[in-house]
């Protein structure tokens, strides 16, 4: 009597289990890498209506962030400057440059410039810029080295876990308030020494400025 099942079927359960494990692992890895804002948000670099370079203005010319984003330390929203702010300099600097035509038109006719928003959190998240900036959390913590970007792109994921990483340990990110807009600032050029000073001063700032490590839902969601 011949066998109903050929001999190789003895391996079938093992092979199936192996394939299932590999496929499952691959799917898990794929989800972990791709279904997260670290993948689908970071690196977003839309084409803007005006080729404004933060690298030139904030980096080379050394303008303070607050010259243009003047409400960032007073309001929950970091405003896009009005065209009149641009015209403070560009009524003389590059005053006939075609790249600035939209800005000049906006300043004369009050028409909005259609900037494309890059950094955006869901509408149920209530992020307040002023409370962070006034307590020593630098722009660079969420926006990266904007002063080195010709065209701004999203550098950090701004996911909930990204927020919580800092909220659980503000001492690791806090810095002197007058260095908040100095994006390249470090405690020391030696990383080991800088880390040590961050640890000591961070704890001190958190205590002195009564910085709360807010982790309740209602801190951000209302």
């Amino acid at each position: 009597m011949s066998a109903i099942f050929p001999k190789w079927t003895n391996w079938l359960p093992l092979v199936l289990a192996l394939v299932a494990a590999l496929a499952g692992g691959a799917v898990t890895a794929g989800v972990a890498v791709y279904v997260t804002p670290k993948y689908y948000r970071v690196g977003y670099q839309p084409v803007q209506p005006v080729p404004f370079s933060h690298k030139v203005h904030a980096g080379q010319l050394g303008l303070d962030c607050r010259y243009c984003h003047s409400n960032v330390d007073k309001s929950w929203v970091a405003n896009i400057p009005s065209a009149s702010t641009c015209m403070n300099c560009h009524n003389q600097v590059l005053k006939d440059d075609p790249r600035l035509a939209i800005v000049r038109e906006s300043a004369t006719n009050n028409t909005p410039i259609p900037w494309v928003q890059i950094h955006i959190v869901p509408d149920y998240v209530y992020f307040n810029h002023s409370v962070h900036v006034n307590r020593g959390i630098s722009c660079v913590e969420c926006h990266g080295r904007v002063d080195q970007m010709d065209t701004v792109r999203q550098a950090k994921s701004l996911s909930m876990s990204f927020c919580l990483d800092c909220h659980r340990d503000p001492a690791a990110h806090i810095r002197p308030v007058d260095k908040v807009t100095d994006l390249g600032w470090q405690w020391d050029s030696d990383p080991a020494k800088a880390a040590k000073m961050q640890e000591i001063n961070g704890t001190k700032f958190v205590h002195d400025w009564k910085v709360e490590s807010l982790q309740s839902c209602s801190a951000c969601h209302r």
Partner: peptide, 30 residues
């Protein structure tokens, strides 16, 4: 991850599945 793209991010948990959550019909500045 981290590649540069000029395309708007794909919203995984988007308004298609949970309308009015991520992008609510309310006024935001500017």
């Amino acid at each position: 991850p981290g590649r540069i793209s000029s395309q708007p991010p794909v919203e995984i948990y988007s308004d298609r599945y949970f309308p009015g959550m991520d992008r609510q019909p309310k006024l935001r500045p500017q």
